[in-house]
Design a protein around this nucleic acid. Sequence first.
DNA 1: ATACATTTTGGGTAGTTGTGGGTAAAACTC
DNA 2: GAGTTTTACCCACAACTACCCAAAATGTAT
Lengths: 154, 154
Amino acid sequence: MTVNQNTFTGEYSYSVDSKGRINIPAKYRQVLSADNESTFVITRGQDACIWVYPAAAWKQIEDQLKHLSSLKQVNRSFVRSTVRHAASVKYDKQGRIALTPYLIDYASLENEVLIIGMVNKIEIWNPAQLEKIEQETKDINAAEFDELANQIIL
Amino acid sequence: MTVNQNTFTGEYSYSVDSKGRINIPAKYRQVLSADNESTFVITRGQDACIWVYPAAAWKQIEDQLKHLSSLKQVNRSFVRSTVRHAASVKYDKQGRIALTPYLIDYASLENEVLIIGMVNKIEIWNPAQLEKIEQETKDINAAEFDELANQIIL
DNA sequence: ATACATTTTGGGTAGTTGTGGGTAAAACTC
DNA sequence: GAGTTTTACCCACAACTACCCAAAATGTAT
């Protein structure tokens, strides 16, 4: 295969149907490696959006969480908050996954949504929410982007 | 089977019936490996909740406890508090397990409960109790959360 | 521009799941 | 040992989910 597997870029405008389902763009399904078995893990994003991981990538996160001892209070809280809203979802013959009511509510999704490739994961946004956040953080980001220049060479 | 065995994620709102029974979410039963023979071990959680382990995983915990020397007072207390209220329970044809009166009381369970996947185990909460604990520990955790998040790349 | 193929969207149906409750066997009490 | 309580197992129903079919929309090639 010529393209990078499990690597997502670009932006798509899709819709959530009355059953809470959403189509995974065909391009993303095509780059998903076979070992994921058509399965993604959806979870609560750090921003007001839904994060979608290839199942195999999420497994690595789980494996790390398994090594945190539950005797520590912080560890328990951390594992709980990370995993609590995660769900493993397989896409159907039409390429759709079912979102959970909680995540739809958390991301304030209505009919129209924006699907954005974030390299190793995918984000699902309410377009209005994204616009709002971009506006709010515009000034702050400008300064910090300079810092990043040290880490990433574009 | 395609998904990760004995690995639990997500959150479910279920109910405890008048006989003290609670349904194990179908997703959790499906990922339980065959060697557990439909059996979980329920025990007192570190927080005010019930911990539910796959039977095979609990066996490993017991093995670890065996290696704690009983000469130390702390060890004796710890072993006692961990094992004392543990019960092995097999789920019925409808997928329900019976909780013990002690554990129902310990976790202050009423009709409505929250079942949370914690990767290698399951937690059963009174929603109000969880909310309370999360509030109490929010500030304490903030700093350590960041540390953990840096180690585990989401 | 037209025909063909792929992709997205909408909806129907059969099977699964969660919940309540009934009954018989087992355990416990006096 | 008889009566009472508890436990284990079974059936039934309502709500939900997964799966399938089909139409609409979009993209591609000639």
